[in-house]
Design a protein around this nucleic acid. Structure first.
Length: 274
DNA sequence: AAACGCGCCTGCGGGC
DNA sequence: TGCCCGCAGGCGCGTT
């Protein structure tokens, strides 16, 4: 579920609350996540350690500890992280509870269990499988038009598929890929190698703007996204095409169409996107 | 080798 | 009311 703005919203909510706190114990009630949860691993690396930072790479959260261990956490489609000032009863589908000093808690909930948590030692987390093959961060200086052009020129697949390919650029899921393409005026089915430099630049800027704007609004809450305090995001009010099949385009009035690309719902305004 | 389809899960809303 | 179906924001694997 959560894409870059939602994951970053969670990171920003957790960092000031958990930084420099000592993790006292871990309770695992469900190990059948996307990857089986290695409970002993978690305990061995993290118990009694002080958390020194929380970073984000794409849609992954990376918790760093005073022994240089790293805990990688992915929210999948339905994952949530809840912060509580003191010991609190678990909501349904809570799989892991981290308890810090003075009873502060972090609850990991994930009804669909597409998320996962794993641990790495000091010397190998940056080279771990999930992170190693990721492309550039869209809100960093490495996301250049030239870089995007180079990737697009060697592919004939639909541009939307490439935009959601995290080996090229990370953090854009179905919602923001659809929105970025609308704002750039580019049809999601266009072959990658048909985009010229002007269009590529427009797409890059649109992606950045959509992500920034969504981040500013605390993410998009369609059904269940909540930040660490249980608050929803507000970007859904600014969605222009996503989920609006059959409704009229806010810009040109044409009827928004729904099609399927790479198995995902795709929304397009036939008037605005070419 | 790129790129697609599918499976992993539960929950929800719509149609009958 | 209740059942069944399709659909949901992600990722990785196997196949072609």
């Amino acid at each position: 579920m959560p894409e870059l703005p939602e994951v970053e919203t969670i990171r920003r909510g957790l960092l000031p609350r958990l930084k420099n706190k000592i993790l006292q114990h871990i309770v695992v009630t469900e190990t059948r996540l996307r990857k089986p949860l290695q409970e002993q691993d978690l305990r061995r690396h993290l118990q009694g350690r002080r958390m020194i930072d929380i970073r984000r790479r794409g849609k992954y959260l990376i918790f760093l500890w005073d022994n240089n261990a790293a805990m990688l956490l992915h929210l999948g489609m339905s994952g949530r992280l809840g912060y509580y000032r003191r010991q609190t009863d678990a909501e349904p589908h809570t799989h892991v509870i981290f308890t810090f000093q003075r009873g502060e808690q972090l609850h990991f909930r994930d009804p669909r269990r597409f998320g996962f948590i794993c641990c790495y030692r000091a010397d190998d987390w940056q080279q771990c499988r999930p992170l190693k093959q990721l492309g550039v961060e869209p809100l960093s200086r490495f996301f250049r038009t030239k870089y995007l052009m180079q990737h697009l020129q060697k592919s004939k697949r639909p541009i939307k598929n490439a935009l959601m390919d995290n080996r090229i650029v990370v953090g854009l899921g179905n919602i923001y890929a659809n929105e970025a393409l609308f704002h750039a005026g580019i049809h999601p089915q266009r072959a990658c190698d048909s985009l010229n430099e002007v269009e590529t630049e427009r797409l890059r800027l649109s992606a950045i703007q959509v992500l920034r704007r969504a981040l500013h609004q605390g993410g998009t809450t369609l059904n269940d996204f909540r930040d660490t305090q249980g608050e929803p995001g507000f970007f859904q009010a600014e969605l222009t095409v996503y989920g609006r099949a059959g409704e009229s385009c806010r810009r040109c009035g044409a009827k928004i169409e729904r099609l399927v690309l790479a198995g995902r719902s795709t929304f397009v305004c036939p008037g605005c996107q070419r």
